[in-house]
């Protein structure tokens, strides 16, 4: 066997640490936006409360619960792979995927209704309102849009995980990729946990 024989490198702890470092950059990225929100709200309190009333608390609550359930199912899929239950892992990932899609469909109808009411960045309706309302909806579209983009990326990643579990590339002794995608999905959940009260509830 040559000195440079191919060896299969696998480092669970190192991979997970790398994923956490990426998650920190995401936390700081969204954290910056939350600080922008805090300052804008401090300067335009009344306008933010007025504009926040336009958002549908029911859809917001529904989407929060959908994301929480999807977080639980992806966490359970990791336990299932550790128990060597491949079909259960696939089923749990499938449920996560469907819930992610439902979240996006709700978001589509929610944004659609807002846009129909003329509430979108640069719209004539918004220009009749003041500076504060424009800022609120600017932040609303940017922050929930960026979050939705993370959901789209998550859907692609969960699909890849399903293929890898199916092909037995991810199994009981080698599941760190699935664990890392789980971490990403929980991060997306945590961001929504804060977006929900800040945009939907405090009005």
């Amino acid at each position: 066997m040559s000195e440079y024989a191919e060896h299969d490198h696998y480092d669970h702890e190192g991979s997970k640490l790398g994923m956490w470092l990426f998650i920190f950059t995401e936390l700081l990225f969204f954290g910056g936006l939350f600080i922008v929100y805090a300052v804008m709200r401090y300067k335009n309190g009344t306008a933010f409360e007025f504009a926040g009333k336009e958002l549908d608390v029911f859809i917001g609550t529904l989407n929060t619960i959908i994301l929480l359930v999807s977080s639980a199912t992806i966490a359970m899929s990791i336990s299932a792979i550790q128990m060597e239950k491949k079909n259960l892992t696939m089923a749990l990932l499938g449920v996560t995927l469907v819930l992610a899609l439902v979240f996006l469909v709700n978001k589509y109808f929610e944004w659609g209704a807002k846009i129909d009411h003329g509430l979108y960045p640069g719209s004539a309706t918004l220009q009749q309102f003041g500076h504060g309302e424009t800022l609120f909806f600017g932040l609303y579209y940017f922050m929930t849009g960026l979050h939705a983009l993370h959901i789209v990326v998550g859907i692609a990643l969960i699909l890849i995980m399903m293929v890898k579990v199916y092909k037995k590339k991810i199994y009981k002794d080698r599941f760190v990729q699935l664990e890392n995608i789980g971490l990403y999905w929980h991060l997306v959940d945590i961001i929504w946990i804060f977006l929900f009260p800040l945009f939907y509830l405090i009005a």
């Binding site: 359970m76 336990s79 550790q82």
Partner: peptide, 15 residues
């Protein structure tokens, strides 16, 4: 540490 030695969190806890 082998992956098989990682703690398995129960479905009940997640639930």
């Amino acid at each position: 540490m082998e992956d098989s030695e990682h703690k398995i969190v129960s479905f009940k806890t997640y639930g």
